[in-house]
Amino acid sequence: MYGIVNKAIQDLVVKEFGTTAWEKVKVRSGIDVDFFISNQPYDDSITYSLAQAVSEETGLTLSQVLIAFGEFWVLHTGKEKYGSLMEAGGASLREFLINLPNFHSRIMLIYPNLKPPEFRVSNVSENSVRVHYFSERIGLQDFVRGLLQGLGKLYDLPVEIELLQSRDDGSDHEIYKISW
C-alpha cells in the first residue's frame, strides 16, 4: 500500500503510546524502513506486519488495532492531510456515504499503483445506508468498521454498524449496514 497508510499507523502509535513504543513496534515487525514516503508504494506485507506488531506490543487484539486505525484514518489522517477533500465528500454522513464510491476512483487515477477498494451503496434511507465493500485484500473488515465508526464521529452522529455478509462466510464481498 502507499506509504501514507504505514505513516498513519506510525502516527497512531506515536500519538497513543509514544515514540519509544513505535521504535519497539518497528523492531518487532522486523521492518527496516526509517521513513515512509506517502506517495511511494510499499509492499502490503509491511502494513500487515506493522498492524500485527502493534497488536503484540500494545496487548490490543488485531481487531481492536484495525478498528482504532480506521477511526484514526478518518479523524486524523483524513482530516489533517485531506481536510477539504473529506469535507467535499458531503455535508452529512448520508451524503458522504453516497459519494463514497467516487472517492477512491478519483485517487486511483492519480496513483497508478493503487489497488483501492471499491464501494457501492444500496438501500439508502433517511437514517441508514448499506455499504458494499469489494477488495483484493483480506482481513481488513475491522478496518472498514473503524473507518465507518470514524465517519460517524466526524459527523457527530452515534452510529450502529452491522456486518450483514462477509467473504468469511462465502460471499464475494462485505455488506455493512450503517444506521444513525
Binding site: 464510491p101 467516487n102 476512483s105 486511483m108 469489494f134
Partner: peptide, 21 residues
C-alpha cells in the same frame, strides 16, 4: 474498472450517477 462489480445494463448505466473508469 469502476464500477467493476455491477451487472451493467443500458438501464443501470443510464442511472449511474458516478465516475466511470
Amino acid at each position: 474498472k469502476r464500477p467493476g462489480h455491477d451487472e451493467l445494463s443500458f438501464q443501470t448505466l443510464g442511472q449511474l450517477n458516478q465516475l466511470i473508469i
